[in-house]
Amino acid sequence: MSTQPRVDPFRDFNFRLEIDNLPVAAFSEVSGLSSDGDTVDYRTGVDIPLTARKLPGLRKFGPVTLKRGMVNDSSLWDWYRNIATGSADRRNGSVILMDEARNDVLRWNLEAAWPNKIEGPTLNATGTEVAFESVELIVEDITLEVA
């Protein structure tokens, strides 16, 4: 019998978002907290095996997609408008995962984020669903902090 305490994984529904200069950012979905990279093939003329070495190349992050129910708040659209009109309005932010007691446990820090795409809701006169908006953020870096 194991004497180690049981460690359950965290649930995905208990999170919040903080972004510089945005009011309360209550989002129902966040996706795209990812990192990927290119590989660079390298081979010298004196390598004995006839294969290329694989070296790490440039890292790529995101895009991070945020979704929320439409409310009487235009802050995302205003931020998008700043970018669309040429302002360099990059902001830092964090996606914070909380445990059942609402204590912070993990934090994904987003650096130099800016909205590249924004979508209003799909409207249907016969539907009863919540009207959702979404925004796609381009980020230069994502780091993970364990609280």
Rank of each mutant, 00 (worst) to 15 (best):
I118H: 03
L55T: 01
L66H: 03
R59H: 06
I83L: 03
I142M: 04
I138L: 13
L55D: 02
N103C: 05
V139F: 02
S34H: 05
G93R: 07
S75Q: 06
A125P: 05
T126Y: 13
T3D: 14
R81P: 00
W114I: 02
L106M: 14
N103S: 07
N72T: 06
S75C: 03
D78I: 06
S35Q: 14
A131I: 06
L58I: 12
N109D: 15
I142L: 08
R107Y: 03
F132R: 04
N72S: 09
T143N: 12
R102I: 06
D41V: 04
W77C: 00
P23C: 01
L55P: 00
S34V: 09
V146W: 14
L110F: 01
V7R: 09
R16E: 13
D41I: 02
N116G: 12
V30D: 11
D141H: 12
R102A: 12
T3G: 13
F61V: 02
L76M: 09
P115R: 06
E111K: 14
W77F: 07
V46R: 15
D36C: 09
E119S: 15
V40W: 10
E18P: 03
R6E: 05
L137M: 06
A147G: 13
E100C: 04
I118T: 01
V64S: 03
K117L: 03
S94A: 15
A112W: 13
T44G: 15
A88Y: 10
E111A: 12
V64T: 03
G120Y: 00
D104F: 04
D12L: 05
N72C: 05
V71S: 04
T44P: 13
R59S: 08
A52T: 13
W79V: 00
W79K: 00
K60L: 03
E119C: 10
E29S: 12
D41L: 14
R81A: 04
R53Q: 15
E140P: 03
W79Q: 00
A84Q: 03
A131N: 08
R43L: 04
F132K: 07
I142R: 06
I48K: 13
S34G: 15
T143P: 10
D38T: 15
T51H: 14
D99E: 11
R11K: 08
R91E: 01
L58M: 14
W108N: 07
R90T: 02
D36H: 11
L33P: 11
M98L: 15
S74I: 02
I96E: 06
P63L: 01
R11Q: 10
E119D: 14
F10Y: 14
V135A: 12
V135S: 03
E18V: 11
L110G: 01
A26Y: 12
D141R: 15
E119N: 15
D12P: 09
V71L: 07
N72H: 08
E133C: 00
P9I: 05
E129C: 03
E140S: 09
F132N: 07
A112L: 13
E133R: 01
D38I: 10
R68S: 01
G127V: 10
L50V: 04
L55F: 11
K54D: 07
T122G: 12
R59L: 10
